[in-house]
C-alpha cells in the first residue's frame, strides 16, 4: 500500500531524514521507534505533507501513486490520517462543525452523500463513547482548553470518524497516564482492520504493550538502523538504544 523509497527530507535547510526505505501493507501495524531527534516526527510530517519540511530526494508511493505531488488535503482524502503529537487549538470553531466539515469533505471525495447535521450528530455522539469523551466536547472549540489526554482522545475520535487507510500516530502515548493510555489504545485497536494500516511513532515501548505491532523499526540519525518483530521493542526496553550504538539524549540526562 505505502512504499517509502530512499526518502531524504530537510527543514530550514538542515537534512533530517537521510534515506528511509519502508514498505507497509494493508492490515499491518508498524512501529517506528527511536531516540529524540532521530527524525521520527519529521517522517510523520512529511507523509502528511507539512510544507515546513522539504523532500530533497526519494519517493513516497501510495497504491503506486506519487504522494509527493499531492497537497495535504488530497493526501488526507486518499486516506492518510495523522494523529498529532501536539494538536493545535482553533478558537470559536466547534469540534462538531470541524468534524462534520472534514467527514463530508471525505465523503464527497469517496462519492458518498454528505451527512445531514442530524445524522452526523448521531454518529459523532456514538463515536465519542468509544474514546470515553463526554459528547459535550463536540460543542467546544477544536481542542480549546482540552487537557493533554482529551486532545489525544479527540485525535483518535477523528481517526474513527474519518476511517483512514493509513493512520499515523505521532507520539500518541506522550503525556498520557495509564488509564488514558488504555482508552487511546482501545480506540486504536478498534481501528485495526485488514484494509487499514497503522504506523505508530513512539519513543517508548509501553504503548506497544497495548497495541501490538507486527513490525518494529529503529530510526536513528535519519535512517532505519534495524528492523524486526515485536521482540525488538522488548529488547530495546531492556537494553536501551545504546545497545545499537545510538545515543539517546533522554537516557543520558536520566543517567
Amino acid at each position: 500500500m505505502l512504499s517509502i523509497r530512499n526518502l531524504h527530507a530537510a527543514v530550514d535547510g538542515k537534512e533530517i531524514l537521510k534515506g528511509i526505505d519502508l514498505e507497509i501493507k494493508p492490515g499491518e501495524v508498524h512501529a517506528i521507534m527511536g531516540p529524540n531527534g532521530s527524525g521520527k516526527s519529521t517522517l510523520s510530517a512529511v507523509l502528511a505533507g507539512n510544507e515546513a519540511y522539504e523532500v530533497t530526494e526519494g519517493d513516497i508511493l501510495l497504491d503506486g501513486e506519487n504522494l509527493l505531488e499531492k497537497e495535504t488535503e488530497e493526501r488526507a482524502r486518499d486516506g492518510i490520517f495523522l494523529a498529532f503529537q501536539y494538536p493545535v487549538e482553533i478558537p470559536g470553531v466547534s469540534n462538531l462543525q470541524f468534524l462534520r466539515t472534514a467527514v463530508n469533505a471525505m465523503r464527497v471525495h469517496r462519492g458518498l452523500d454528505e451527512l445531514s447535521a442530524v445524522d452526523f450528530m448521531k454518529l459523532a455522539k456514538e463515536t465519542t463513547k468509544q474514546v470515553d469523551l463526554d459528547p459535550a466536547f463536540l460543542k467546544r472549540g477544536v481542542n480549546e482548553g482540552f487537557s493533554g489526554g482529551e486532545k489525544k482522545r479527540n485525535e483518535i475520535l477523528q481517526a474513527l470518524l474519518l476511517e483512514p487507510r493509513l493512520a499515523i500516530l505521532d507520539e500518541t502515548d506522550s503525556g498520557l497516564d495509564i488509564d488514558a493510555l488504555k482508552v487511546v489504545a482501545d480506540g486504536v485497536n478498534a481501528l485495526r482492520s485488514p484494509e487499514r494500516a497503522i504506523l505508530m511513532v513512539t519513543h517508548y515501548q509501553r504503548l506497544l504493550n497495548h497495541i501490538v505491532p507486527d513490525f518494529v523499526h529503529v530510526l536513528a540519525g535519519g535512517r532505519i538502523v534495524k528492523s524486526g518483530g515485536r521482540e525488538l521493542a522488548l529488547e530495546l526496553e531492556e537494553r536501551g538504544y545504546g545497545w545499537l550504538g545510538i545515543k539517546d539524549s533522554d537516557e543520558v540526562e536520566a543517567g
Partner: peptide, 13 residues
C-alpha cells in the same frame, strides 16, 4: 500554519 495544517490534514479545503 499549524491550524491550517490540521484542517487540511483532515481533508478540508
Amino acid at each position: 500554519d499549524e491550524q491550517m495544517f490540521l484542517c487540511r490534514q483532515r481533508g478540508i479545503d
